[in-house]
Write a protein that binds this DNA or RNA. Structure first.
Lengths: 353, 353
DNA sequence: TGCATGTTTGCATAGGCATTCATTATTTTT
DNA sequence: AAAAATAATGAATGCCTATGCAAACATGCA
């Protein structure tokens, strides 16, 4: 084991500056009671010695690590999540928090991960596309570490949750398809243990029912390839669908490719396709995907604010928030009369549940 | 500011178990000198109190944080980097290291970021798609914090670097295009301050020169849209190219889309397109991109091993390693006779420079 | 039984910073 | 100019764990 070189300490800076160690500490603490002149002396000495305050020692002393634990899944399979990670990282950075990251698979159990966060005394935990066991939720609550879920509904009153209004999203997709006169519709699900997929399906179903229709369902495993295969199965059905709604964009793209390249179907003339998320790729000319946009920035803002608020004031109760998505009309689904591609039907609003 | 609830400490566990605090510490330290019977007593008491060792205090005491700082850029614009992040995160996790993450933009200056890592006394730093000022490299060397660059060549003897052999990759692309009889070739660059783009261009140029050709160059800014626009400009040239090599896959895909959807060109019949990276999308039926594969897993393995080795033994000198890529032949580029789609020309090997 | 090894154990301290408390310097008030 | 209030300072202590050291204990062997 190599010896780590010794870093300059506040005491050494103090000696050089001719002040006490306390003064050095105060010089680096915004709002501390210290004369401007001594602060300058301290900074001067600090610079000379290449002093970096030791955040580890500070954390031990203040009992705040200024670290947020983030768990993220699907980062390689769904371009939506890199967007989320990017936005999260920036927000926390802006707010003076560091990020400790775990990349997991969708089905990975977090009960081994979260304790590692707890060992490092993270100030809060944000879970993306990952679910929380209620035992862990309790444990974190007991230790006073707030948890916020992003894009998963909450299993427990101990955590906050920020989601897109998936049910309404499903309804919007169904409405569009009904208005443009489809008769045989399908839903490509992600997986049956994921609230996003289940809720989108539910809203979709509900709305179709009003028109006396029932979707046929296939499973796309939240992946391009899974959806590609699902589309091929769907087209082999006796009554093959004239519209497919997918639980997310990456699957919608898989379906589109399957329809065009493996099934020789014209989209949207023969089959309409709708996705969910509005990832950047959805706007690419090859796809031009009609989809439900999740307002990432707004959702992230809310989630980050909530988590930081609860860190700073532990009396704040966790909350569940639903954010409405927007229907982004492009050209992968037949247009109802009166609607043109490029139109965004914005119903964005936020509501508490 | 909310009071953080007090966690159980080793002293409390000690009291309950009827041993000293040292014993508790030893019980949680693999390889420490402690009787199995007392270890059991300790674990029992620890479990009863819900004790989590405090990694912050441990870090302060051992002067090792077990944290690796990772900086990653392009995470939303290039699917290659989510793959890299995923692989990195898993590797470090396996090796018992946590990851502190910063997501940055390509041009963001790291001189504000790295000091934050240093404050937290990270054990090592890994930079992906980001460049390092030589001042910072020195600072880290002074403090004994090893740095490893991934996919950027090293500006300084103080850091290690792990790259794909970009020059050879460029040559491979050129060779393929020459063998299949192209006469007017173009290169879509990423940016002129990035070693990857410059080196790929250089190898491409070198090999073309042997055939008396010179590529015309345009700039795609490492993005889908940038490359889309570049392709349109290229096709407007008096001598429009019959082959385009792109500095990465996401740009190749942008070029493909531009050619097919905006320029009505057949690919590969009228124009061949070659990318670099072999991101998952490259294999999608819509694109079927011929490309140079970067062997991510192998590169990451080497990079992680190197960094951890240098952390554990600070006498090890930083090294620069080049890993050969493989030419993955699909159908976005005309095939030379004797070669069929699906073929992978593997020249993979690693060499030190 | 007695001595030499080897193993366990606890005490005491270090690690770097923040913070309380008591003290001193400075400013404001009258 | 004195009194009162405020600001700035340093000494001492706490945060929690790891570890060097010496003492206590256990084991093997003669």
């Amino acid at each position: 084991m190599a010896e780590r070189k010794v870093n300059t300490t506040s005491t050494q800076v103090a000696k050089l500056a001719g002040v006490s160690q306390s003064a050095v500490s105060r010089a680096f603490t915004p709002g501390a009671s210290i004369a401007e002149s001594t602060r300058r002396k301290v900074f001067h000495a600090a610079r000379k010695l290449g002093y970096q305050p030791n955040a580890i020692a500070r954390s031990l002393s203040t009992k705040r690590s200024k670290i947020i634990g983030i768990v993220i899944a699907n980062v390689t399979t769904n371009p939506f999540y890199p967007e989320v990670l990017d936005a999260l990282s920036r927000r926390f950075q802006q707010r003076g928090q560091r990020v400790m990251l775990f990349v997991v698979t969708r089905d990975q159990n977090l009960d081994d991960i979260l304790p590692q966060f707890l060992e490092y005394r993270v100030d809060g935990i944000l879970l993306t596309a990952a679910t929380l066991s209620s035992a862990m939720a309790h444990e974190c609550a007991r230790l006073g570490v707030p948890i916020t879920l992003f894009n998963r509904s909450v299993p427990d009153a101990h955590a906050s949750s920020f989601c897109c209004d998936n049910i309404e999203g499903g309804r919007m997709a169904a409405r569009l398809l009904m208005e443009s006169g489809h008769h045989q519709v399908a839903f490509v699900a992600g997986s049956n243990d994921t609230s996003t997929s289940l809720e989108r399906e539910r809203g979709f179903r509900e709305e179709l029912k009003k028109h006396g229709l029932e979707p046929c369902i296939d499973m796309g495993e939240f992946s391009y390839q899974g959806a590609f295969d699902a589309a091929r199965r769907l087209m082999k059905l006796p009554k093959s669908p004239d519209a497919v709604f997918c639980a997310n964009d990456i699957m919608a793209i898989g379906v589109l490719d399957a329809l065009r390249h493996a099934e020789q179907k014209k989209v949207p003339e023969e089959v309409s396709v709708i996705g969910f998320d509005d990832i950047p790729m959805a706007a690419w000319p090859s796809y031009n995907l009609t989809t439900i946009r999740q307002p990432i920035e707004r959702m992230i803002d809310s989630a980050v604010n909530d988590l930081l608020d609860r860190i700073n004031q532990n009396t704040i109760a966790p909350k569940q928030e639903l954010v409405r998505g927007d229907l982004v009309v492009r050209s992968s689904a037949k247009l109802p009369s009166g609607l043109s591609s490029g139109y965004v039907i914005s119903t964005s609003e936020t509501r508490n549940v």
